[in-house]
Amino acid sequence: MIAFLIRRLLQACIVMGVISLIGFSLRHTVGDPVREMYGMSVSAEVRAEARERLGLNDPIIVQYFRFLKNAVQGDLGNSLFYQKPALEVILSKAPATLELVFTSALLITLLSVPCGIYSAIHPRRLLSRIILGVSTVGVSVPVFFTALMCISLFSITLGWLPSFGRGELTPLFGGAWETGFLTWSGIKHLIMPSFALTSIMLPLFIRLVRAEMMEVLQMDYVKYARAKGLSERRIYWVHAFRNTLLPVITVGGVQLGILIAFTILTETVFNWKGLGGMFKEAVDRGDTSLLVAYMVVVGALFVVVNTVVDVIYGMVNPMVRVVGRK
């Protein structure tokens, strides 16, 4: 297990290295640190002096290692627009996005597993066909269009749900985390964004669970479990589902990471003050440092999620567990 963990961590470090390299080259080619500090209207001398002072005339490799050193210490540069350290800006926006992603991930898990398994067990039933049909349609509707339709129906026509913002927030941990989970208004604001975000991934998950489950149901050990006279419930949930879980975890982990990217669209529509909306604004404003910081933070998040997923996989799959133990 420890060897397995170390290997995973090493891989994670390599991936982070690649991400930092891309981030650095982005900043190096696209960004202009001098402009970030002084704005456009400064003389050429000031500019040159600043370049020298900031070390922009140093060899690239030296600059990269400086970037890396700063990044490891949590210094990802200053945001041009906010005039604050980029990391600080990101941390202040992160709770909103994380709450949204968490709610959607929860919804996806709770809905996709029963739907996928049901339609795998009874592929010919009407309900299975409906589930599959709806999920095909779901895959084909862009997330922002779902969001717009929701607003049009529930906010404009019916007036049931608020169309933008996060509602009433409750500060937690001395104000570092503002949560919308604790007030009715916060939850009401959360319903549509999380539904929209869920709608983009849920169909994929249902299909994934269904495909895997159908494959497992073909296996000999399922037939054998029947031959042993076990109950249907035990066959499906213990024998088949456990084996379905493994591939679903690996693919699912990656896909959940992708949810974060889709928050860009969802948050834009619902004016949700999170990382996605911030990212869109940063691109509009050409706030390179913030972009790079976002990329590094989100990249790190992906790497963490993937590593955790792999470790969970290792714990569920007896083969990895034992190989690691040796």
Partner: peptide, 21 residues
């Protein structure tokens, strides 16, 4: 590995980055 990293970032995000460049 490159494909993995790119995929885990999702195509939309990668497209936005490349677009920004």
């Amino acid at each position: 590995r490159l494909a993995d990293v790119q995929l885990s970032f999702s195509t939309l995000l990668v497209a936005i980055f490349i677009g920004a460049m």
